[in-house]
C-alpha cells in the first residue's frame, strides 16, 4: 500500500508543476525535443539534409529543444506519412519531404493519405536536381561524349539503368525520357543513391539518373561523368556539364524538393515558429556553403507560394504516374 501512496504523491506533485508551467501564455516554443521524420533510409539525400538541419540547430542553439531525426523508410514513405497523419495537432513533429510524398499517396491509395489535408507545409529550403551519369570507362558507353551521343546509343541498344527503387523519382524520370527520346532501358533497382553510384562505376549498369551529392565522390575522382543537368542553367559545382535548356531540351527539367511539413491541425502560432526556425537555418552560413558546394539549389519558398508549388508538383507527378502505367 505504501508504495502506491508514495507514487500517487509523486504524480500529484509533478502534475502540479506541469500545469503551472503550461498555463502561462507565451509565444510558442517547443516544450520537448522535436521529432523530425525522414521518409527514407539512413545515408540518402533527405537523411543528409535532415541531419544537417539538426546539426546546425544544435550547434548554434537556434531552438530551445533539440531536433531528433527519425528514419521511417517503410513503404516508400508510406509509413512516415501515416505516422505524421496520425499525429494531427502534434506540435513537436516535423517531416522532411522527398518527392515520394507526392507519389506514394497516389500509388498506395489503401493508405488513405490526403496530401493536401493531412499536412501543414512550412517551407521549401532546397531543390536538388538530377543529372544523367555514365561511367568514364563504361564498356557499353565507350565513345559517348555528349548527351546526343548517348541518346543515339540508347535508341539502338537496351542499356541498363541503375535506380533507387521501383516507382521512385528516377524510374518516373526514365519513363518521362522514354516518351521524349524514344528509347527504352532495363531498370535495375538498388537500395539507395550510394549503391546506385557504385553499381555504375562497377560496370553493372550503363547509366544512372542521380542527384549531385550521391555521385559526387566518383565525379571528383573522375570515375564517372555527367552528360546533362536537368535545369535551365549550369550549376557552379559542375561547371562543364551543360544544362538541358542549352542542349535544346527544355522539357527535360526535374527537381527533387527538400521541404518541411508539420502535421495537420496545428496552431498558426506553431506554424509561424517552425517556419521562422527553418528560415534561420536556411540563412546559416554553414548550411548555405555545404549545400552550394554539393551542387544543390537554394530555393526558399513558404506560405501561398509553397502551397501553389506543391499543388502543381502533385498534379505533375499524378500525370507522370498515369503515363507510366
Amino acid at each position: 500500500m505504501s508504495i502506491i501512496k508514495k507514487l500517487a504523491l509523486v504524480i500529484v506533485s509533478l502534475s502540479l508543476v506541469a500545469v503551472s508551467s503550461v498555463s502561462s501564455a507565451k509565444p510558442f516554443s517547443p516544450k520537448k525535443p522535436v521529432e523530425l521524420i525522414i521518409p527514407a533510409g539512413q545515408g540518402g539525400g533527405a537523411d543528409e539534409i535532415a541531419r544537417l538541419v539538426q546539426g546546425v540547430i544544435e550547434k548554434n542553439d537556434y531552438a530551445s529543444k533539440p531536433v531528433i531525426p527519425i528514419n521511417k523508410a517503410g513503404g516508400s514513405g508510406g509509413e512516415a506519412m501515416t505516422y505524421v497523419k496520425k499525429k494531427a495537432g502534434d506540435e513537436h513533429t516535423l517531416i522532411i519531404t522527398l518527392n515520394n510524398v507526392l507519389t506514394t499517396p497516389v500509388n498506395q491509395p489503401e493508405l488513405g493519405i490526403d496530401f493536401f489535408n493531412d499536412f501543414t507545409p512550412l517551407a521549401r529550403l532546397i531543390t536538388d536536381t538530377f543529372l544523367v551519369w555514365i561511367a568514364t570507362e563504361g564498356k557499353n558507353t565507350a565513345g559517348v561524349e555528349t548527351f546526343d551521343d548517348f541518346i543515339d546509343l540508347a535508341r539502338g541498344n537496351g542499356l541498363v539503368m541503375g535506380g533507387t527503387g521501383s516507382m521512385s523519382e528516377d524510374e518516373l524520370l526514365l519513363g518521362m525520357m522514354r516518351g521524349q527520346f524514344g528509347f527504352d532501358a532495363k531498370y535495375v533497382p538498388y537500395s539507395g543513391g550510394g549503391a546506385v553510384a557504385k553499381g555504375l562505376v562497377g560496370g553493372e549498369s550503363d547509366f544512372t539518373l542521380n542527384n549531385p551529392s550521391e555521385q559526387m565522390g566518383f565525379y571528383q575522382s573522375g570515375d564517372s561523368k555527367a552528360l546533362v543537368m536537368m535545369t535551365p542553367e549550369r550549376n557552379p559545382a559542375f561547371p562543364e556539364v551543360p544544362s538541358s535548356y542549352e542542349l535544346g531540351y527544355p522539357d527535360l527539367e526535374y527537381y527533387m524538393m527538400r521541404a518541411f511539413m508539420a502535421p495537420a491541425g496545428i496552431d498558426a502560432e506553431v506554424e509561424k515558429y517552425y517556419t521562422g526556425l527553418l528560415h534561420t537555418v536556411y540563412h546559416d552560413n554553414e548550411f548555405q556553403t555545404f549545400n552550394i558546394d554539393d551542387g544543390k539549389l537554394m530555393s526558399w519558398l513558404e506560405g501561398f507560394g509553397l502551397k501553389d508549388f506543391l499543388a502543381i508538383e502533385y498534379a505533375k507527378h499524378g500525370e507522370i504516374i498515369k503515363n507510366f502505367n
Partner: peptide, 8 residues
C-alpha cells in the same frame, strides 16, 4: 515493400 516492383 518489395524493392523490385514497389508493391507492398
Amino acid at each position: 515493400l518489395d524493392l523490385i516492383t514497389g508493391k507492398p
